[in-house]
Amino acid sequence: MVTETNESHLLIIEDDQGRKEFSLENTIYSLGRDRDCNIRLMSQFVSRRHATLVRMQRGDSNGYGSYYYRIVDGDAKGKPSANGLIINGRKMPVHNLKNEDEIVFGPQVRAIYYLLQNTQLSRQTDEVEYDITLINPGMNEDEDIED
């Protein structure tokens, strides 16, 4: 029997327009208030190109298909944002994201990163098993039973 792990990467943004969820699958994302950003942050306190998310391949041998995201302050050309990034309460220019990391971009603008892992066991046979419980529609506990 083989065990596979499927990972899902999720970024939940809270800004002036409420809460939005982004499923991360691309290799790079731009975050900021500019209209051209992949993930737009709605706040006057956020830079036009505030941060960049970059997908990184894991280095371990058993991490086939496994990756993580690195967040970098500023745009992809190296220009930093005005306010920087506060990650888990510390100001940081770069951080490899881990499950439930909190990123603060400015007042009332934040994100939480989730790494969701779904472990599945794949079968060696093609046989499909179902667990089915059959209920007779005439069997209702609320009905009066006549003797």
Rank of each mutant, 00 (worst) to 15 (best):
T3V: 14
E4I: 15
N6K: 14
L10V: 13
L11C: 00
I12C: 05
I13L: 12
I13D: 03
E25W: 08
N26K: 15
N26D: 15
T27F: 11
R33C: 07
R35Y: 10
R35G: 07
R40G: 02
R40T: 10
L41C: 02
M42P: 00
F45S: 15
S47T: 05
R48T: 04
R49Y: 15
H50V: 05
A51Y: 03
A51D: 02
L53Q: 01
R55I: 02
R55T: 02
M56Y: 08
Q57C: 06
R58N: 13
G59S: 11
N62P: 00
Y64A: 11
G65L: 02
Y69T: 05
Y69L: 07
I71E: 04
V72I: 15
D73M: 04
G74M: 02
D75L: 06
I86P: 01
I86F: 07
I86E: 14
G89D: 04
R90Y: 08
R90V: 12
K91A: 10
K91N: 08
M92N: 09
P93V: 06
H95A: 13
L97R: 00
E102L: 14
E102G: 01
I103S: 06
V104D: 07
G106Y: 03
P107D: 12
Q108M: 09
I112W: 02
I112R: 14
Y113V: 00
L115F: 05
L115D: 06
N118M: 09
Q120P: 00
R123G: 04
T125H: 08
Y130E: 11
I135L: 12
P137E: 04
G138N: 15
G138R: 13
E141G: 14
E141V: 12
E141L: 15
D144N: 07
I145L: 12
E146Y: 15
D147N: 08
